[in-house]
Design a protein around this nucleic acid. Structure first.
Lengths: 250, 250
DNA sequence: CGAGGAGTTGAAGAATTTCAACAAAGGTGG
DNA sequence: CCACCTTTGTTGAAATTCTTCAACTCCTCG
């Protein structure tokens, strides 16, 4: 309850516009938590797409297996994120999804989403959430396309840092990152070996300290400067004008 | 009129569900066409975001200028595409946008979108359109991350080919592509020099014939096989189940 | 204690960038 | 209509980044 009430709700809320009725509808989604074990698949590419998942605990990721045996990770999902939005609009899954560590998710069906869409304020919130997710994707496209390995990794770590901070999972600039270097290499499009070297490089520059899953960014601002980080897209709040527009429209 | 009536409408329509009223609302957007000259900017990064644009004629693109002087192109917009969806959910533009050649666009405001959101079937259609756009982005992320230069270029050309075919701008496997190699290099994250070499390579293999803006793909299927193209994401029609779900929901 | 997964390091090779020079095409103004 | 200038594309050679292959270490878990 606490999760949807905070993280997801915060994402969907247009300030002061969400009615108690809307809230109830949203919390009604939280009916059947499912416990998922580490490495368990949520679905495979091409499976029928008929629902979303909200992550309550644990990390997950979506990916695509390629013919040459490599795989490309599209996105890592942290607690509070919604998995499967991308497939909305298609009959089948465009990418596979799996848990990284053990966790809990809330599945909800497209049917439930349609009910939400009946109420315009929620529709706008959901739309905005989707667009924010797309913005994250664009950002990754940019640094995959234009940056060298150490910048890509730095950007990646800083993005994770910001997203974890939003859900209060960062303490003293440290956080837990349950990813292997293999997973990171699949996400950033570089070889696992080079990920290792690049971590060493960042460590020598005093930008990243890492011991297995424990990551510390001694100077996040320095990291942000290094990667020309554009943090507007991670902003959680919808613009004020949205509320005004909603009130103005029938 | 013809454009929104066909291309955009087709994207938003949930089969048999769009009411005459919805249609009228949608066509009402088409009030003020704007003529834009080649290379003219639609907006810059960080400008106030308050509207979308539907492209009627010409090509456009969105991009981000980077500190090191390079730029990353996020997407090329063809006639019928909607520019600026990504910024919905933010106060300011996340990326700049500009026309490539001379063209015509239809601007419409967020305000107008909110009115559309009042009607659930349109909301779903718009959402689905947004998700399809995101799927395209994911696809590019994949090939930027995992593929070699010649595969990236091949994939890119095949994607453009499919998108142009959808709007009936392909004849005898040939189409017009008003892009310089510089633009392509910014989109694919490679150097302009290497784009040139890679075009030569594809030409020698008989996969691509190009004379300035005229591009011909003698054997599109061979190209598709080469790049492991996943064409489900370009599919225009919404799944049938959507219509059923909509009817079922109040 | 042994085995396997994860991470590190070195060296060779491949892919791609950069720099530089040149060629071809297009637009502009005389 | 031509000459000129700018933009676009091509080619070569050197430099750089990154990958691959392989060996080795460390840690964890059974």
């Amino acid at each position: 309850m606490a999760l949807l009430d905070t993280v997801v709700m915060r994402g969907l809320t247009v300030q002061g516009v969400l009615s108690p009725e809307d809230r109830a509808l949203l919390l009604g989604l939280e009916l059947n938590p499912r416990h998922i074990s580490a490495n368990e698949e949520l679905w495979q590419e091409r499976a029928d797409a008929d629902m979303f998942c909200v992550v309550k605990e644990g990390w997950a990721y979506s990916y695509r297996n390629l013919r040459n045996g490599s795989k490309q990770i599209l996105k890592f999902y942290l607690p509070g994120d919604i998995i499967g939005m991308r497939d909305f609009g298609f009959t089948r899954r465009l990418s596979s999804a799996a848990m990284i560590n053990q966790g809990v998710i809330y599945p909800f069906s497209y049917q439930q989403l349609f009910e939400l869409f009946g109420r315009s304020s929620l529709a706008v919130g959901i739309m905005a959430t989707a667009m924010r997710q797309q913005a994250l994707l664009s950002e990754r496209l940019i640094y995959l396309g234009q940056y060298a390995a150490h910048e890509r990794l730095a950007h990646f770590l800083y993005e994770i840092y910001l997203r974890l901070k939003r859900i209060e999972a960062v303490e003293d600039n440290s956080f837990l990152m349950p990813l292997t270097q293999q997973l990171i290499s699949d996400a950033l499009g570089m070889s696992p070996v080079h990920v290792s070297r690049t971590f060493s490089m960042l460590r020598e520059e005093g930008l990243v300290i890492r011991d297995r899953q424990h990551v510390k960014l001694p100077d996040p601002e320095a990291l942000a400067r290094l990667v020309e980080f554009n943090d507007s897209y991670i902003d959680e709040l919808l613009p004020l004008t949205f509320a005004e527009l909603l009130r103005a429209s029938p």
